[in-house]
Design a protein around this nucleic acid. Sequence first.
RNA 1: GGGGAGUUACCGAAGCGGUCAAACGGGUCAGACUGUAAAUCUGAUGGCUAUGCCUUCACAGGUUCGAAUCCUGUACUCCCCA
Length: 430
Amino acid sequence: MPFFADLQWRGLVHQTTDPALGAWLAEKPRTFYVGFDPTADSLHVGHLLGVMMLRRFQRAGHRPIAVVGGATGMIGDPSGKSAERNLLSKEQLQLNIDGMKRQMEQFIDFDESQPRALLLNNFDWTGPWSYLEFLRDIGKNFPVNVMLAKDSVKGRLGRGDAGDPQAGMSYTEFSYMLLQAYDFVHLHDRHGCELQAGGSDQWGNITAGIDLARRMRGAHLQGFTWPLLTKSDGAKMGKTESGAVWLAAERTSPYAFYQYWFNVDDADAANCLRLLTELPQAEIEALDAARVADAAKRESQRRLAEELTKLVHGEAGLTAAKQATDIFFGAEISSLSDKELGQIFADVPSKDLPAASLQGAGLPVIDALVEAGLAASKGEARRTVTQGGAYVNNRRVDGVDAALTPASLASETVVVLRSGKKKYALLRFA
RNA sequence: GGGGAGUUACCGAAGCGGUCAAACGGGUCAGACUGUAAAUCUGAUGGCUAUGCCUUCACAGGUUCGAAUCCUGUACUCCCCA
């Protein structure tokens, strides 16, 4: 299947500036760019579509450019936001940009491949502008009535009222689209970039760039958007009770990342496979059929989790995630080493206690649950045990009087406690 | 400024002198079922050295053998009139 037709089949194409974009791309290798907001020092699931898009283009022989918004990040993109944004400090921005760079390198080849990918920071060309120059050269090309008509602006106007000073929109945010628009012109000048893509909320910013390039250079540039990644219930993909799902292993462990995708609703599986993986059409359709036939097997979710974990955390990360999964949902834990347990339970809270507390009558399980933070009080711990929800090394505790002794150690110094189905904690006796 | 209503556990909301650690609903936590899902069902839900003890019903005092419940003052919230 031709490259762009494949994107369309996957549902990755929402709006385009030109219905014949596929043919245009097939003519010759094009330079293509996607912008990223440096809001944190790690990418999260919300960035995945964009990063994957760069990767897809590179693999199809086009040249991808990732633009990190060092300049625009200082302003704050109003698109899709309901309130004025907090501005980030320059130092924080630099940290964020560095972190995001490292992660993108896993997806995109910045070195050897022929159509060499680039990672640029728009502060490099936006920073030197003086305000007057900017107004004369860039601002002159933006009719205010056109700017006011953009959805990102329209949605925010009229909201300002005395009761909520955060409503409405500041001049700073209003100027955001000028900066992003100029990015496109600059990339066209310096790198021959002709195509920009972004999430559907970026449509206004993309077309602003195309308009500016036409006015300033007489150039004819292209753009398209992909749909926002949402769940069947309308909620944003990649959000959990405990916050965003990150790509950085320090923020979201490979295990947690794997589990997130493994637990995707049946209704969302088809979409995720298409939008996020590189599996070929035939395989995705086979998975769809298998899911309809036997949803309980969750072949789609497993494949999704495997593909994405491998992509983000590598083979080793995937192996670790699957190993941890086996243990978490498996039988008793015993004869492992401290090191193995430490890796498997990387994001499980732990607490150090003196080894002596295991001696004699041992440490009552009730107390252990409280120490480990699995119960807020002894009463709660007692309740959990009584109801059969407490486990030591994945083995159910069968009485409130049970105690931990040296025999309870699952490895040299660690005991694995669990409350309920999935809440774990480690106790280290050193 | 004047008049009225209120303040109960994580949230909402009963209780109006003893039988109140406080009904009920939501949430939360466990259990069963299940596909590591959804729905459903069951139990639990102030603390503890636990058939008892201790600390809670805005805050501080008071009445009483006994108060979340009555009285006085303080703080805050809401409504009506100016």
